[in-house]
Design a protein around this nucleic acid. Structure first.
Lengths: 207, 207
DNA sequence: TAGATTGTTAATCGATTAACAATC
DNA sequence: TAGATTGTTAATCGATTAACAATC
């Protein structure tokens, strides 16, 4: 009964390995060594073996890992299902940008609705495959549809309020594009994406 | 002559403090303690003092830090100038989303041109305040305009090729939205933003 | 002076890496 | 059997936190 705790960093790296394995599967590779995977993922081989050790033992010494098996195990560890419904809150600048970004579905995440204080602000609404509602309907929608994941892209000031509504309604994981420090229960998964902070910190590397 | 090396993580946190300080300045706060700043930034006070120690001593014991001074010092450490020109490469899904995201300028970063293998694919080109060129002009444009920062948002397969062109042309820092592991010279600053990986890793926190 | 808060040292914690026996 | 590569332990490294003397 080893309750090996998987650290946040390991979880993130597993999600990187997952993509590499998918690619390997497309290329019809049977097996992959930690060394090969290391090259693909830009991570050291020892690190990879350590990470994989957290979720079990499925390598074959002298041979490497079976690509299909490993992919399945990581998918199930991360809980990647065929399609995960998500909602997106805030369709201003960045939010409306994300609406039109089709890349989520390919990855197994499907936007099923968007919300804003002014749902009509989005041009080209007709082109979208999901509705845009007023934010007052956010809580009930999430509850009724059992949505577990949300993307927040509202202005800084509104971030916490939206997060509270979401958590109240049963959301379990949030990808937050607002530059807001959210106070949330421990149990909620939260990843911060702060474009501006990334750019500011990159400035440091200019000579 | 202390050559205190500032770690990547510290640099990133400095960029977070910067935003908080700007807000404090808007609120016309004179001083701020590490404790207060900690609350705003979602970081522990000790961590903040440690980070600030890397770049000098400007606190007053018993009082805290002067907001204006601290903001200036961090800005100059990060090399935040009034306006930093950037180019964006790839105007497909996510790239064109970023084009229309106006939030960069407010933060001191100005998109001055975009590039793609098919510059005509972007609708509403007329609304943009900068031109979209064919990618064949990327190298010379960067060189001629002395651009130092770039955003990459091309498909996975093209990432490395674009990065090579940019580096060749003198780019010094890259924000990479392509899920590509870029091989770059040590001297180039690189921040990875992998939306899909973030979502996949969030799945882990669903129950 | 008394209270507050910095700057810094030392202790802790966690994550990465090296090394190698186990084994296919 | 010989070569390759895992799984894991131990060593290293770096980052975070606690504690507190210095000092405004």
């Amino acid at each position: 009964m080893d309750k090996v705790v998987i650290s946040r960093k390991t979880v993130y790296r597993l999600s990187l390995y997952q993509r590499c394995l998918n690619r390997l599967q497309e290329d019809e590779a049977e097996t992959v060594s930690s060394e090969d995977l290391a090259h693909l993922a830009g991570i050291k081989p020892t690190q990879i073996r350590k990470d994989l050790a957290c979720i079990g033992q499925f390598g074959t010494r002298g041979l490497g890992y079976n690509v299909a098996t490993l992919s399945k195990v990581i998918s199930s560890t991360l809980g990647l299902s065929a399609s995960q419904p998500i909602v997106i809150v805030g369709v201003g600048n960045l939010g409306s940008a994300l609406l039109h970004y089709g890349g989520f579905r390919k990855e197994g995440f499907e936007i099923i609705a968007a919300f804003d204080v002014d749902p009509d602000r989005v041009k080209a609404r007709g082109e979208l495959e999901f509705p845009i509602y007023h934010v007052r309907n956010l809580g009930s929608f999430v509850r009724e549809h059992g949505v577990r994941m949300a993307i927040i892209a509202v202005p800084e000031a509104a971030g916490q309020e939206i997060a509270d509504i979401l958590v109240d309604a049963g959301i379990q994981a949030i990808l937050n594009f607002s530059p807001t420090v959210l106070k949330l229960p421990e149990s909620i998964g939260i990843n911060q994406m702060d474009l501006a902070a990334e750019l500011r910190s990159l400035s440091f590397f200019l000579r």
